[in-house]
Amino acid sequence: MSIMLEIENLQASIDDTPILRGLSLKVGAGEVHAIMGPNGSGKSTLAQVIAGHEDYRVTDGSVLFDGENLLDLAPEERARKGIFLGFQYPVEIPGVNNAYLLKAAVNARRTYQGQDEIDAFEFLKLAREKMSLLDMDPGFLNRGVNEGFSGGEKKRNEILQMALLEPRLAILDETDSGLDIDALKAVAKGVNALRDPQRSIVLVTHYQRLLDYIVPDYVHVLSKGRIVRSGDKSLALELEARGYDWVQEAVSA
């Protein structure tokens, strides 16, 4: 199996405070990885660094995507190569039409891949297909980006964007937080529908609950900016039963 994402000894800091302290991870094509860990362990930082957020400074290590160095690329270039970040807190952009943003995003990706842009009709058709898959009201498209959305709507909107952009690597940052059980199921359904031998998914989550619905191939536990334990889905259940202290103690012991 080919390696899609290869992270080696990644160190990153924000405002000179180190967050990631030598993190290594390999994600193969078609795999689903779950990254778990207590608050402050660096889970979200990892997601933001892969997407290229400029507040984080990479001080050492490398991130390769399909063997190519990602760290020199602007966020939009990473996105066009097929990296998608589902945000933990999707920002509201007042006045900007959801459909407009999505169409611009889809066409940016298509242009990069040497395909023709799709027109408004094709786009709407495509969007409606994906929305029915996610049980979303088509009215969503005409609203401002996340403007006045409930927490659950914002997360669904992220999954809709993922479905439309068909990324090669999707990183979903705490997509389960703040969702009730029905919304969680709907989101999981959307993610599962996108599982594909050519597509990798990294789930960043605090709780095991999501993994009941999206079953990962691998589970990693993050602590103080490093992966301290890896295993299969049973590791998540063990964490649920014994808490994060167990892993942290095991490491420091």
């Binding site: 290229g52 966020p75 939009e76 066009r80 920002v91 940016a108 990706r109």
Partner: peptide
């Protein structure tokens, strides 16, 4: 900055 990053993460130029 959050709005800009959000758009750029979706592949839209700055």
């Amino acid at each position: 900055a959050d709005q800009l990053f959000y758009c750029r993460q979706r592949g839209i130029s700055e």
